[in-house]
Amino acid sequence: MNRSKAGPLLDVKDLVKVYGSRRSGRQNGYVAVDTVSFDIERGRTFGLVGESGSGKSTIGRAVLRLIELTSGEVRINGTNIGRLSTRELRRARQEMQMVFQDPYSSLNPRVRVGSTIREAMRICGKTRTSGHNGELNELLLKVGLTPEFANRYPHELSGGQLQRIAIARAMSVSPSLVVLDEPTSALDVSVQKGILKLLTDIQIEHNVSYLFISHDIAVVRAMSDVIGVMKAGKLVETGAAEQVLDNPQHEYTKELLTAVPKLPGESAALAFSAPE
């Protein structure tokens, strides 16, 4: 599965996304993402932090080309996905998957969750006929559920369970990159921990890369190897996680770090350590 090519798995160069302007180059659109460049190594996690509206999710969607870029390029495994035809793009998307913030609405309410996962496998041509039930059960166990869950409808599951299903769906096609768009921010803290642990375990086992988008610094710290800080569409600071968080260079990063609420008596709210 590992097509090892030299260079990073994901390479984003000068990404620009302007909303509300036509291709004709009118300048009055809203600049959601302004010349952002970064890359992600295989098996690593790039954490993208920033406040609401800073363009984090836009980058996540642009990486999968769920939205068209205004300019710049996104390369995965060296392939520029901006140039692919619709058909090639559909194939390329199996290399990269996405887990969304809201687990309730990211699954079709009328389809049993097992079928949802099976369909993901079928789309990428992974299931022929035999053995896919075994594979499905294995996946469900892997994400901490039981095979009986396959016959449930989304409205019968809790948020955390649904997010596990969404992760199982993403992992079912053995992607090399998963975009995690605030995967835990709709969940309560205890469930959050379980999900983060699951993601970490999956990463270790499958050597998958994550683009982890969140506004929660503690969570990003726990997950990321490299962190990028977004502000108003610009990537203001990038660097190794400890470096950015312990020794922030940019004003905005400092501001963001001091904005983390602290409980009285707690030295720092960043105590949220990597899940064991």
Partner: peptide
């Protein structure tokens, strides 16, 4: 969930 399907390819 439609966007999710699209992201699945």
């Amino acid at each position: 969930f439609i966007e999710a399907m699209r992201s699945q390819g």
